[in-house]
Structure formats: C-alpha cells, structure tokens
Nucleic acid binder design. Structure first.
Lengths: 226, 226
DNA sequence: CTCCAATCTGAACACTGTTGAGATAGTGGC
DNA sequence: GCCACTATCTCAACAGTGTTCAGATTGGAG
C-alpha cells in the first residue's frame, strides 16, 4: 500500500512477503535480496534498515513461518478432538499437519526445517516442538504412555515426524497420492508411539537431549548473555 | 600432485577434495567455486571442464560422500555381527553410524542429507537406503518382523534415523555427550522396530512410497529417458 | 513551524558463477 | 622424429550478488 511514496509504511513485512513468494516461485535459495526489494518497489539498500543481512531476512521469515505452523498444528489437534478425544489421534493429526505442510509447500519447508537459520533470540510461539511436547504430556496423563517413558519421548516422535517431512520435502522419498501420505504418516506416528509404549527398562542414562528452541527460552528467562 | 604443471593430473577429484575441506571449514554453503579452484592452484574456469556448474560440483561431492557413507554403514553392521548375530543389533549399529556421522561432520551432513542435490543419473552404490533395506530384509527373514509388516517398513525406520540425524546436524536438538547420542539413537531405532513389530492390521492401502534413489535405478534399468 | 530521527536512494565496492576465445601440452599416427 | 589432434587449462569479460555509506526525503514530536 501507499504506492509511489518515499516511505513505504510497512516495508519489513512487505519484504518478508516478497521473499516468501520468491521462495515458492524459485526455490528456497534461488532468489536475491535485490529481487525482493525490487518487487516491493524499493532500493536494495532499503532492506538493511529492517534486516542486518540477507541471512537475517530468511531467519525472520523462517521464524514467522515456524510460529504459524505451530499454531496450525495446535488447531489441527483441536479439530480431531471434537470427534473423539483420543490423545493418540491428536498426535496423529499433529504429524499429519507437519508432513502435509512440508509436502504442500516444499520450498518453504526446505527453508524452514533446515533450521540452522532460527536466530539466537527468536521467540517462536508456539514452536511446533512445544506443541508436540504438550500433546505427549496429554497422552502420558491419559495413561497412553508409561510414566518412566515420558522423559525425552518427544525427541523420538519428533525425529520420526521431522524425518518423514524432510525426506518428502527434499524429494528423497516420493508419494504421489495424498491419502497415501496420510497413511504413511499415521504409520510412522503409530509405530513411534507403540514403540515408546512398549519400552521396558527406564534406561539409566536417559537422553540428555535438549531442543535448541527451549534452550533459548531458558537462557532468556535467566537473563544470560547471547 | 605434479605441481606447477599446466595439466593438473586429476583436477576433478582435487576439486572435490578442496570443496570438501571448504565445506568443513566454512559451512555447507559459505564457499565459492573460485576458492576451491584457487586452492587447487587452478583458474576458476578450469573447473568447468569437469563440472557443468557449481551445483554439479556439490552434487558430485554429495554422491561421493553418500556412497562412502553407505559402505561404512554396511561395515558397521558387519562389525557388530562378529559379536552376536542379532539383526536388531545390526540395525541399531546402522542407525548409530548414520547419526554419529551426521554429528561428527555436520557441515558435510547438511550438504549431503539436504539431498535435493543428488542428480538424476547418479549411481550411488551402496546407497544408505539400500543398506537399510537389506538389513530390514534380514530382520524379517529372522522372524523379527511379521511378514505383512515388511513392505514399506524401510521408510518408517529411515524417517526415524534420518530425522534424528538432521535434527542434530542442523542444531535443532543438542546432545553433548557422545554416549547419550548413542543412547538416543538406540532408543529411536528400538522404538521404530518395536512399533513396526506390533503392527496389527495389514492396512489395505500400504504406503506407495518410493525412494528417489531406487526410482532412478529402475528408470535406468528400463532405459527410460532422463 | 522546526528540528530530529527514521527511512529510503544512489553510487560504489569486492566478489560471485559462467562464458568464449585462445594458449599449452600430452597422445597417437606416420 | 615430427605432425596434427584433442583434452586441458588461462585470461578477460559479463551480468548479477550482498553490503556499505554519504546524502536526500519524510513523518512526527516539541
């Protein structure tokens, strides 16, 4: 909006939007800051008043999309909850949302799930990882998962879902039929959940795995430096 | 070798080597064809007699590394077979090899596992996916997996292992201790295998998933055009 | 109305991938 | 031994990139 004016109005999000459509048109990496600026009708250097670098642009875009995805995954869980409140069904819906998105928007998925991009002070909320974690809590509370199995279980499930998503987005695995994608996703989630439920020993040294995202949150809460 | 000469000798693999160390030094993408050429002591345009483009270089590097990884994973399986020939142990060893590599060489892992890079006529042998598939066959034959579960099971396991590997390589999940990485990997593989073993119904429409790699092989066997 | 700080422009920098015309040197035929 | 041939490499150039910085333009606060 506000065409022809010297001051754009909301250049920051306009640039994010332009970058997003460029990613979809040309692929995750085949576009330039200059192109995005030109589409918005602004000089290349204007972007540097809103982003420290091209990398910062893609980071911001990545974070925006990740937050959007987190919200959508939560909604997806709620949607199936209306039919029958089965915590396992909710997790399957979550996985389906994750994978379906990666397949429907593969270029953006490659950009976002590549992940190294998310900055050190990003406040992605809700982060997909957190949504998944919460759903697993719900499953554990409902008795669908032995208590001693819960710690770190999110990484098992996340690995399975994330793995399928990137295999599809990167074109390493191909599934034509959308229904087959859902079936495959359900199979992966079910296998992971069942596998977790059948775990026998509490395994003395349980995974000291930490999500980079929750680490960031903790660091900010304690006021630690960058 | 053969310094100062006009003709290099084996420029092709020298460029691949230079690119590989550049990837490790600076990250998967932060290096240029010109730099690699300069390190080898050759003009930038010389590279174009061996690779059609910079992209073709990284594709070739990717394929070389993937084949190396496939071989190593096979060896890893054999190594544990010496101790006790348990097909499940072999698969855990395979997963461990995959994940450990991704963590020990994260920049290369990001380059390779990103995967879109592997060309349409790449002859990666043995491809990690094939090694995994063979090991699953072995498990099924040994009775560790119901027969009706076998079809497509490789994608469940691959997703889990690949997922963990990329989560770690991309820094989305952090695990400091190397032993903890092994523990987490074992947990993921075990969960997937157990989950598969407990599958109940043969699921009418089983995943029509196909690996891009095996598709390429099939296409070449039938002599189809690119 | 004036001044300020935020915002944007224009021109420049070093660098990139890629191309094409020509130099160089190993190879096989006589 | 010499010749031509072809693969290999160099040099110079092109368009396009991310990034910087001095200066023009503006909306808003005092």
């Amino acid at each position: 909006m506000a065409k022809g004016r010297y001051h754009h109005g909301d250049l920051r999000s306009a640039l994010l939007d332009a970058a997003e459509t460029l990613v979809r048109e040309r692929g995750a990496d085949d576009w330039s800051l200059r192109e995005a600026s030109a589409r918005v009708g602004v000089s290349p250097s204007a972007a540097y008043h809103h982003f420290a670098s091209r990398d910062a642009l893609v980071r911001a875009l990545s974070e925006r999309t990740l937050a959007w995805l987190g919200k959508r995954l939560g909604q997806e869980c709620e949607r199936v909850a209306g039919q029958a409140d089965d915590p396992q069904r909710r997790l399957i819906a979550l996985g389906r949302g994750y994978v379906t998105w990666a397949l429907d928007d593969p270029a953006m998925a490659r950009l976002v799930l590549r992940g190294g991009a998310t900055g050190p002070d990003s406040a992605i909320s809700p982060h997909p990882h957190d949504v998944l974690s919460a759903e697993l809590d719900r499953l554990a509370e409902a008795g669908g998962l032995p208590a001693f199995t819960r710690p770190g279980a999110e990484f098992v499930l996340w690995a399975a879902i994330h793995g399928l998503a990137v295999l599809l987005a990167d074109g390493l695995v191909r599934i034509d039929d959308a229904a087959a994608v859902d079936a495959q996703t359900e199979r992966v989630v079910r296998a992971a959940l069942n596998g977790l439920a059948r775990e026998t020993s509490p395994a003395a040294d349980r995974p000291a795995a930490r999500s980079a995202h929750t680490e960031r949150l903790a660091r900010r809460a304690t006021g630690e430096p960058h």
